[in-house]
């Protein structure tokens, strides 16, 4: 089963929740942790994997054969990302804008376009106890990250519990991550800002048709905002984690929440049991 851990914005404690879930699951059997936040991966800072493999990830980029090209301009017209400009005797390619869709190649009447490869980042895999750890690292300055997220997700092994740590926000990279998950955990804070971002995240997850539940992190006991919202939306609040300075300090020192507070483990274990039994899957 694939379980995505997401949040409408960064800094809600999403990674410490995902890492804790992986650690608790690993006490019972093998589990995978896929860090899909390829722009700023940080799951490894909490789970400390021993790295085993590194693989470069490339995307196709068009190459124009000047001898075949008649500079008709068709490729630039159809490119939705404006990655091409056709001049009277030259075609300019802006690789950093190209999404590798292959459209230009398909429509070129002169068959003047072929494909080359451009490296956008890498996928690294390793082991942390019973946790198989995978993450993607996007090259600095690279704007296109969804193919790299796809490469990270390819590592998901069927039949194993796979935990996806999603990027923050609700844009393409998050959608790419969460799509196909069997369940999505939304981590939020009990503040008006938290609610605002949670609303967007719920909208996205519902649109994708993925069952979801909410974890309220850094709860100070005043959670009415989130509770009312979850009731209106018919989404379960899975559990709450209280505001805890030790946990915050642990995070800064590279320790997931359940390592600092082993007493919180049953919360995660219950959630895992529920997911396995299909109980949390409200649609």
């Amino acid at each position: 089963m694939i379980v995505a851990v997401a949040s409408g914005k960064g800094g809600t404690g999403k990674t410490t929740v995902a890492a804790s879930l992986a650690l608790v699951a690993a006490e019972k059997g093998p589990v995978q942790y896929l860090d899909c936040d390829v722009e700023e991966p940080n799951g490894h800072l909490l789970l400390h994997p021993a790295w085993e493999h590194r693989r470069a990830v490339t995307v196709p980029v068009p190459v124009i054969d000047r001898d075949k090209c008649n500079f008709c301009g068709r490729c630039a017209q159809i490119c939705a990302f404006h990655a091409l400009a056709v001049l009277p005797d030259e075609v300019l390619v802006f690789p950093e804008l190209c999404h590798g869709c292959g459209g230009c190649q398909y429509f070129c009447p002169m068959k003047a376009i072929t494909e080359n490869k451009r490296e956008i980042g890498c996928v690294e895999t390793g082991q942390s106890g019973a946790i198989q750890f995978v993450h993607g690292c996007l090259q600095v300055g690279e704007a296109i990250c969804t193919p790299l997220i796809g490469a990270v997700k390819e590592q998901a092994a069927p039949g194993t519990l796979t935990i996806l740590d999603a990027p923050p926000g609700t844009s393409c990279p998050v959608i790419k991550t969460v799509t196909n998950a069997g369940f999505c955990i939304l981590v939020t804070e009990p503040t008006p800002f938290g609610l605002h971002d949670l609303r967007l995240a719920v909208k996205m997850v519902k649109k994708l048709g993925i069952p979801c539940g909410i974890i309220i992190n850094r709860s100070d006991g005043q959670d009415q905002l989130i509770v009312e919202f979850s009731r209106d939306m018919h989404i379960p609040v899975l559990f709450r984690l209280p505001e805890d300075r030790m946990v915050a300090e642990g995070y800064a020192g590279g320790m997931p929440a359940v390592t600092v507070r082993p007493a919180w483990k049953p919360l995660f274990q219950n959630l895992l049991d529920g997911l396995e039994a299909g109980k949390q899957c409200v649609s």
Binding site: G73, A76, H82, A85, L97
Partner: peptide, 19 residues
Amino acid sequence: PGINSSGGAGIQTAQTLVD
């Protein structure tokens, strides 16, 4: 034509003027 494009607006505008 570039005013509403989601990226590469300058390239699209420049292409128009080149044409």
